[in-house]
Every structure is written in C-alpha cells, then in structure tokens.
Design a protein around this nucleic acid. Structure first.
Length: 547
RNA sequence: GCGCUCGUAGCUCAGCGGAUAGAGCAGUGGACUUCUAAUCCACCGGUCGCAGGUUCGAAUCCUGCCGGGCGCGCCA
C-alpha cells in the first residue's frame, strides 16, 4: 500500500474545495509527524488568507476518518499521524500478498536495458563492474514491477582487432580450446605480434577483410573466440549473481548487415555530409572544441564503420524489431555525448519516434584510495575475476563478499564517483551489504527456533510502529528507484528498514513474548525478512538464511 | 575555449522547493544471566564550495564565479 498516495487522494478534494481548483497536497514524510502537507502555505497569497486558517479548513474538510489524525502545525503545515488501525490493516494486506502489496504497473512497457557489454577475447575488468551491476538491478526492478524487460548484452565482438586475434589463432594451429587458453594472455600475445611483426600485421589486415567478407575458416575461428568468451562471461555473471544469460548476447557483429541500410537511410534523409573523407551526421545543438558543429562519424574515411553506425543500427533494431517503448543504455558517463548524438540523429532519421524514450544511464567512476581511477598496485586494470576472488577471500562467505561489492556500487547516487574501500564495504555495520544480510539472517534464525509461524500483526510499541512505517515505505522506494533509474533510492530505504528492525529487535523480544504479542512480532519479523529479501533481490544481492 | 558532471559533519554519503539539514563510519560515554553484541542507545560534530537572483519559503530552481573529474572527427 502506498500511504503517500492514499493521503494525497484524501487531501486533494479538500484542498480543491478550499482553493476552488485542483491543488497538489504535497504529502511528504515529516520529522514532526508521519507525513505532512505544506500545500496550504502556497495558497495563502492567492487566497489572501493566513495559511494556518487554510490548513484548518482543509483539515476539517478532508475525509481522513480511520486513516490519520490531522493537526495544523507551525506556519500552516498539516501534520498527519496515521491511525493504528490503518497501519495494522496495511501490514496485514502486505503480509498476505506475495508481492508485499506492491501491485504490478497498470501499463507495462517494453524496456530494453543495454548493459555490461564486455569485449570478446578480453577479460572483464573493473571498468565493466558498474554497468553490469547497475544494469542488472534496473532490469530486475522493472521486470518485478511488471514491465517487459529485454536484456541486451552489447558485446564488443567485431572490428579491426579481430583480424589480429583470428590470425593469431591461425598461427596457433586452429580453434581448439587449448590454443586460446587464458584470454588476456591470448589477446596480449596477439597484440605484441601486431605491434612488432610487420608480416603479421599485414596478415591481420587481410584477415579482417576475409572475416568481413565471410571467409568460412575465418568465421569459424571468430565464432570459436566469441563462444569461448561468452562462456567466460556467463561464468562471471553466475559468480556475480547477474541475470544476463546466453540469449541476451547481441554483439556489434549482429548489426553488420544493417550498416549499409543505415547509411542509405541517412543519405536519403539528407543527414550525411562528407568531411575529410568520412560520412558524418551533424545533429543540431552539438558543438566541438572550436565551436564548430560536432560530427557523428557514421562511416570512416577508409570505408569502415564506426561504433556510431552500429549504435544507430541497434536503435533501429530495438525500436523496429524488438518493439521497445523505452531503451536504457547503462554506459559510463564519458559516453554521454556520444549517445545523445546517436539519439538525436536517430530521431532526425525517423528511427526513434517521439513516444519511444531513449536514455543514457550514466554513472561515475570507481576510484582507488588515491582518488584516481581504480588500478592495481602495478598500475594495470584490475580483472573482475581477481576482484571477486579477493572479495570472497576477505568475507566470511562468498555471498557476503559479492553482496558487499554490489551494494557498495548501488548504495550511492550512480552519477557520483566512489572510492573502492574493502574495509568499509565489508563492514557489518553501516550502510553496507553485510548489514542488510545480517538483519535478514537474524530473522531467519528466529523462525528456525520459533516453532510457530507469523501471526496477525497488531502494532503497539513505538519501535514496532517505526518498523511498520519503514515496511510500508517499501513500495514508494521501489517506485522512486524505477522512476529515476536510481537503485540507490531502494538501497537507502532498505538500510533504513534494517536499522528500524535492529532497534525493534533490541526493544521488543519476540520469542519471549506470549500469545498475540508474540504472534504479532513474528508477523512483523516475517514481513521484514520478506521485504529485505525482495528488496535485495531487486538489487541483485543474495540474502542467505545464515551468516 | 566549449560541454557534461560532482562539490553537504574529520571521512563515506542521503536529502534535490517546505518547519530546528539527516544517516553511517571515526571520536567520547553507556548496554551482553539477552531471540545471531557481525548489534543497540546517548553525546560530540555542518556559514550545505562562493556570490547574486527567483520564491511566502532555497542544500534543493536560475545566473556568474572557484575547485575536482570526464569529454570535445575517424578507438569503443
């Protein structure tokens, strides 16, 4: 149940009656009561009356019987204090519902979420962490709310590096698993040869041509590389608890057949200009260093296609074939302008209708303790696998270590940078994954000993009431996270819920209570566990029964 | 130079138009015959980068500065 909406709906008619027109009651959580409405303040000038008088009139007119006690406060606020009956009823309704009282959206959208997108033949590294974690949390959240989510893993599986990689594979004698071995070593060996061996470099260039023109051997070896990499990615996703699966891979190679059509389409619309031999689009409103129009390079001077062409083809495909109502690109902030330009060109080309939303979901960097981009001590990029190994080694259990990393990534505003700090993220207290897991596990242990299940909730103690309000704040938190594509809104709420539960735990004995009090507290505990479990599930964080 | 983004307590961060700006960590002082003390309670701690503006009301919106990060034609 969404209490804010309920209060909003009850106050709106009263405000409309007093003001003579519709007014947003502006119901918010309040430090002075459960909720407050400050709308009377804004009406004072218009109505030429003191705000407290307006507030009093609204309070008298509003139908809040059985829902909340209302009082005029301060300069003209309405303080709203929920009745015990309403709280009990709302908790019972949530407890009786598998979805905790959160109804699916009434108008489901088809939402394409593009995230993770690692490069074939390279190991995943910390640079892929945030996109993978944030994207997965968003996909899970939208899906749970009832949207039709299509996950897209836009692999870097095409382009000039693959001439080099395939040629290297040929040198090693073909495509058996053993010849590829460690992906990073394989890539680096190819790279070294490419940089130092003229003959190899020439063969690599020819191999690109062969690959792109469909030479069977080249294609087979390329496919082997892709397959190997995909299996490796899936292993990482399994460790991370990320829901990307084998059917979600849709790499750049998939759009190669569409690129000529992209160029043709843009040409037909008169959107392409030749500049220094390259075909460029110049969407309105983008300027570069010298104030000149900023180009989106669709086809390079050498005739090859850049990523802009692929991204445009992907937009076309996602709108035209996948039927997207909304597309989210969970990609780091540095690419913000690129995507804005892609979206702008796609709109001009007619591939992105006005009623389809395309959003770049940017995020900040992960920093080391020195305040710079996170690197290993030697200054290299840190492999994701190594990071996960360390998390597991440092934590009491794999789920705790992995959960700590994921929660640290999701608990702050995604646009900000954050400092990667093992001690802080693994701490059992504070706004951390382990704290949430601990709160959940405590409840599970309670039921392991209780000998009876949850009963009907009837809130009496202040700590129970605080917990109840936190529980009822779950729905608004999930909807807020979804509305702004900001998982931290849910994460912060879950931390507050866990804190409210801890306070309840200290002050309100459960198993030592008797009769209906014991049953009610078990009911509160159970609802808390289920809410934490669901919320953590939406963030992609495991909630073990024991820690 | 232009653009994007971030500047809130010693540290890490919420809050993003409403009443005395909130948490956590660190610090100080308490609480274990107790359902997981991996916890809880209290205290301490802030000219919300600076200066204007809009508003009944600004950390929140606008403008201009200052400081950090990132981008700005053939890498993705």
């Amino acid at each position: 149940m969404n209490l804010e909406s309920l209060l909003h709906d009850r106050l709106a008619p009263a405000f409309a009656a007093v003001a003579g027109h519709p007014v947003d009651p502006a119901v918010r959580a309040s430090p002075h009561a459960d909720f407050q409405s400050g709308a009377a303040l804004g009406l004072a000038r218009e109505l030429g009356r003191p705000p407290r008088e307006i507030a009093a009139e609204v309070a008298a007119a509003a139908d809040l019987a059985g829902i909340a006690d209302v009082a005029v406060s301060g300069p003209g606020f309405l303080n709203l204090t929920l009745t015990g009956d309403l709280i009990d009823a709302a908790l019972r309704a949530a407890a009786a519902d598998e979805r905790l009282g959160v109804a699916p959206v009434t108008a489901p959208e088809r939402i394409v979420v593009d995230y993770s997108g690692p490069n074939v033949a390279k190991e995943m590294h910390v640079g892929h962490l945030r996109s993978t974690i944030i994207g997965d949390a968003l996909a899970r959240t939208y899906e749970w709310l009832g949207h039709d989510v299509i996950r897209v893993n836009h692999l870097g599986d095409w382009g000039t590096p693959f001439g080099m990689l395939v040629e290297h594979l040929v040198d090693l004698g073909g495509g058996s698993d053993h010849s590829i071995g460690d992906l990073t070593a394989f890539y680096q060996a190819a790279r070294v040869k490419f940089d130092t061996d003229d003959d190899f470099r020439t063969r690599a260039r020819l191999r690109v041509v062969a690959l792109q023109s469909g030479d069977p051997l080249s294609r087979d070896l390329w496919r082997e590389l892709v397959a190997r990499s995909e299996q490796y990615f899936l292993d990482v996703y399994a460790r991370l608890g990320v829901t990307l699966g084998p059917d979600d891979f849709a790499g750049e190679s998939r759009y190669q057949g569409d690129l000529d059509a992209v160029v043709a389409g843009l040409t037909e619309k008169g959107l392409l200009t030749e500049s220094d031999g390259a075909l460029c689009a110049f969407p309105a409103g983008f300027t570069g260093r010298d104030g000149a129009p900023l180009p989106l390079i669709v086809r390079k001077a050498d005739g090859g296609f850049g990523y802009a062409a692929t991204d445009l083809a992907a937009v076309r495909h996602r709108v035209g074939k996948l039927g997207a109502d909304r597309m989210l690109y969970v990609v780091g902030s540095p690419q913000r302008i690129h995507f804005q330009m892609v979206f702008a060109v796609a709109r001009e080309a007619g591939w992105l209708p006005d009623d389809v939303i395309a959003e770049h979901i940017g995020f900040g960097s992960i920093l080391g303790s020195d305040g710079k981009m996170l690197k290993s001590r030697a200054g290299d990029t840190i492999k994701l696998a190594a990071l996960l190994d360390e998390a597991v080694a440092r934590a009491t259990a794999p789920a705790v270590g992995i959960g700590a990393i994921k929660y640290a990534d999701l608990s702050g505003d995604r646009m900000g940078d954050y400092v990667f700090d093992w001690d802080r993220m693994l701490a059992s207290t504070g706004n951390t994954g382990p704290y949430l897991q601990y709160a959940h596990a405590r409840i599970r242990s309670l039921f392991a000993k209780a000998g009876s299940g949850p009963g009907e909730v009837a809130v009496t103690e202040p700590a129970e009431r605080d917990l109840a309000l936190a529980l009822l704040g779950f729905e608004p938190a999930v909807r807020a996270a979804a509305a702004s594509a900001e998982p931290h809104r849910l994460a912060v709420h879950l931390h507050g819920l866990a804190m409210a539960f801890s306070a309840f735990w200290e002050r309100c004995p459960v198993l030592r209570a008797e009769g209906s009090v014991r049953a009610s507290r078990l009911g509160l505990a159970d609802l808390t566990a289920r809410t934490l479990h669901t919320g953590m599930f939406l963030l992609g964080i495991e909630a073990p029964d024991q820690i």
